[in-house]
């Protein structure tokens, strides 16, 4: 079976004036359909750049990305992004924010009533129907991120890209949102690529964790497969041997072998 999503020898060089910095070096990995993959690494290691390359918001210097056999060279709704700071349009209501995406993606394929229904269905998935007529400034940070997820899901993307989706949230809200994302992944079977620098989050949610070395010249340091069965329960995993071993492994990678060196930045 051919890989669903293939990141093929991606290099990214930023040039400013006469100095050029290679941020990403020879990144190659594959993601199968329905898999949940996390990218983890210290800040500045280029994981956001990599996600932007997959999203098509940035171009790779060499190498490329194939999604379902098609090369990525521009952004599109088949690779919906959930941005770290939600990026909802503040002048639209919760419903209108999702509806904008639905209208744009399914404007030709679905009738008006179907699009309305699909918008509400996606708000329902993230439990946000109660706030459909509120504006983003009127709901909490966690709710904004839920709407961001609903907007991305509503595009029915081939790959869902999450750019530190829970980074700006407090710990309790983050845990609840992680559970929501886990449940959605279980239910819908999306292929997900997520950036994070939270070790627990990566181990809890992912099938595989791609650990990146420090930049510049960041590359894949190690790829770890999480063997725990799904559905996973946060509380049960706390004492699960496999979970603890994976967690230990990632922590060792990040804080011993590739400790963040301030001087390098």
């Amino acid at each position: 079976m051919r890989p669903f999503c293939k990141i093929d020898h991606v290099d990214k060089v930023f040039t400013r004036g006469s100095t050029s910095t290679r941020v990403l070096k020879d990144i190659t990995f594959e993601v199968t359909k329905g898999e949940y993959v996390s990218l983890i690494g210290h800040s500045g290691c280029g994981k956001s750049t990599l996600l932007n390359i997959v999203a098509g918001l940035t171009n790779a210097t060499t190498g490329g990305v194939l999604i379902d056999g098609v090369e990525v060279n521009e952004p599109g709704p088949d690779r919906a992004v959930v941005f770290q700071n939600h990026s909802l349009l503040p002048w639209l209501t919760v419903y209108e924010n999702v509806r904008l995406a639905v209208d744009k993606v399914f404007g030709k394929g679905k009738s008006r009533a179907e699009r309305d229904e699909w918008t509400l269905h996606n708000l329902e998935l993230v439990q946000m129907t109660h706030a459909r007529d509120k504006r983003p400034s009127e709901v909490s940070g966690g709710m904004k991120q839920r709407v961001g997820i609903a907007r991305a899901l509503a595009m029915e993307p081939k790959v869902l890209l999450l750019d530190e989706p829970f980074g700006a949230l407090d710990a309790l809200t983050r845990a609840r949102l992680q559970d929501t994302v886990m449940a959605l992944h279980q239910k819908l079977g999306n292929t997900v690529m997520m950036i994070t620098h939270d070790v627990d989050e990566a181990v809890l949610l992912s099938d595989r964790i791609i650990m990146m070395t420090n930049g510049p010249d960041a590359e894949i340091g190690e790829i770890l497969t999480m063997p725990m069965a799904r559905p996973r329960k946060r509380l049960e995993l706390v004492s699960d041997a496999a979970f603890l071993a994976c967690r230990q492994r990632v922590l060792e990678f990040l804080y011993e072998r590739h400790r963040f060196v301030e001087a390098a930045a």
Partner: peptide, 16 residues
């Protein structure tokens, strides 16, 4: 830039 990114992902045309 966020709004521009959203527009890019949604493939809004110039008029939209």
């Amino acid at each position: 830039q966020d709004y521009r990114n959203v527009a890019a992902v949604l493939k809004l045309n110039h008029l939209e």
